[in-house]
Design a protein around this nucleic acid. Structure first.
Lengths: 198, 198
DNA sequence: AACGATACGGAGCAACGTTCCGTTTTGTCA
DNA sequence: TGACAAAACGGAACGTTGCTCCGTATCGTT
C-alpha cells in the first residue's frame, strides 16, 4: 500500500447472474481483440465483439488497465511463480535469471502492444505499469540478489531498473526481422556479469 | 531508396514571403510546444501557438513526422557528425562508441516523448523512425565496426539493433528517479565487450 | 405477482486528426 | 499604379475514439 493505488476493476464480486456472465464474455472478447488489434484497441470494438453496450464494459472495468490486467492476470501470475521455481531448478542463479527473463520477454512480445502500454504515459495505463511492477519486481529482485550473492553478477543494479529495461527492449512493431528483443536482453544480462578478471 | 519512403515535408522551397515566414513561425511554435507537451501534442495547439490555421500546418508538414524531423534536424545532424569526430579523438573505438551513445541518449531523454514516438506504430510516426535510422545507423555502424576491429567488443551485433535498443531504453516517463536510461545503456555496452578470458 | 435493487444499452459530449474549399495575400506584368 | 492569376491561408466540418449519464430492462426476493 505504498502507493494510494486506486483502481478497482469491478467494485466487488456481484451477485447477479447476468453480471457474471457479461464479465466473462467481456474477458473473452477482449482477449480475442487484443490479439488482432493490440491492447489499445477501441473500447467500442471490444464491446461490439462481446455484444454488450459500452456502459457495461466501463462498469466492469473502469479503466483500460483494469481490463488488460484481468485478461493477463493468469500469465503474469505464472511468470511470478516461475521465479522461485527456476531458482531452485537452474544450474545457477544467473542461469535462473536468464531463463526467467526469457519467460518475461516471451510473454511481452506475444502480446501486441503490451510492452508499449507498460511504458505509455497515456491515461489509463499507469495502473498497468504498477500492477506488473508490484507483482514481478520482487521476483526479479530475488533472482538478482541470488546472482549477486553467488558472485555471478556485480551488485548495484536495482530490480526495478532491470525490469523496466527488459520491458523497454520488448517495445516495437512485431515482425521486424532485424530487431530481436531476446538478443538485446541477453546483452543486457551479459553486461551485468561480474567482469572476469584477466 | 530501398524503401519507397514517401513523405515530403514542404513540396519544395516556396517563393512567397508569407509561406516562408509561416514555416519558420511554425517551427518555433512546434519546438516550444514539444518542450511542454511532448512531440505528440495536439496539432491544434501548435497551430494556435503559431497563430495560424490548421490548413497551414498540414500544408507545410503533411505528417507529424515531417514536423518533428524539421524541428530536430539540426540536432540529429550534430549527433551524426559527432560519430567520426569522437572516433578520432577518443582513447579507443569503444570509448568513442560510449561517448556517442551518451550523446544520443542525452538527445532523446531531453525530448519529451521522442523516444516513444520513434518506436510508436501509430500513424504518422514511421517516417520519424526511418529518418533517425537512415541518418544515424551508418554512424553507429562505423563506431561498432571500429570497436570490433580493435578487438574491444565481440562481432555479431548489428548497428540497427543496437540503435533501437538504445532508443528503447530511453522510453518512459521522465523524472523517475529509479530509472536511468544511461545506466542501462552502459550495461548494454558492457554486454557487448569481448569476454575477458579468465 | 410485485417490487426494489442491480445492471444494461447506447445516445451524447468532448478532444483530436485530417480534409476541403471559399477567401485573402502575394508577386508580376501591363 | 492597378489588375489578375497563382499561391497560401483559415477554419468549418467530418470521422474516430474515450468516457459519462440516465432511461429502461433484468434479476432476485418476498
Amino acid at each position: 500500500m505504498s502507493t494510494p493505488s486506486q483502481s478497482g476493476e469491478v467494485p466487488a464480486r456481484s451477485k447477479r447472474a447476468d453480471a457474471l456472465r457479461n464479465r466473462q464474455t467481456l474477458l473473452d472478447a477482449a482477449a480475442a481483440v487484443f490479439v488482432t488489434s493490440g491492447v489499445d484497441a477501441p473500447i467500442r470494438e471490444i464491446a461490439a465483439r462481446a455484444g454488450v453496450g459500452m456502459g457495461t464494459i466501463y462498469r466492469h472495468f473502469p479503466t483500460r488497465a483494469d481490463l488488460v490486467v484481468a485478461v493477463y492476470r493468469h500469465q503474469v501470475e505464472a511468470c511470478a511463480e516461475a521465479g522461485p521455481t527456476l531458482l531452485a531448478s537452474a544450474d545457477s542463479p544467473l542461469a535462473a535469471l536468464r531463463q526467467w527473463a526469457d519467460l518475461f520477454v516471451d510473454f511481452l512480445v506475444t502480446k501486441h502492444g503490451l510492452a508499449n502500454a507498460l511504458q505509455s504515459d497515456s491515461s489509463g495505463f499507469e495502473a498497468l505499469h504498477s500492477y506488473f511492477l508490484d507483482r514481478l519486481e520482487p521476483v526479479c529482485a530475488q533472482l538478482l540478489d541470488a546472482a549477486v550473492e553467488a558472485g555471478e553478477i556485480r551488485p548495484g543494479t536495482q530490480a526495478y531498473e532491470l525490469m523496466r529495461g527488459i520491458g523497454n527492449l520488448c517495445i516495437g512493431r512485431d515482425s521486424d526481422r532485424r530487431y530481436d528483443p531476446r538478443r538485446l536482453v541477453e546483452l543486457l544480462l551479459q553486461g551485468l556479469r561480474r567482469p572476469q578478471s584477466s
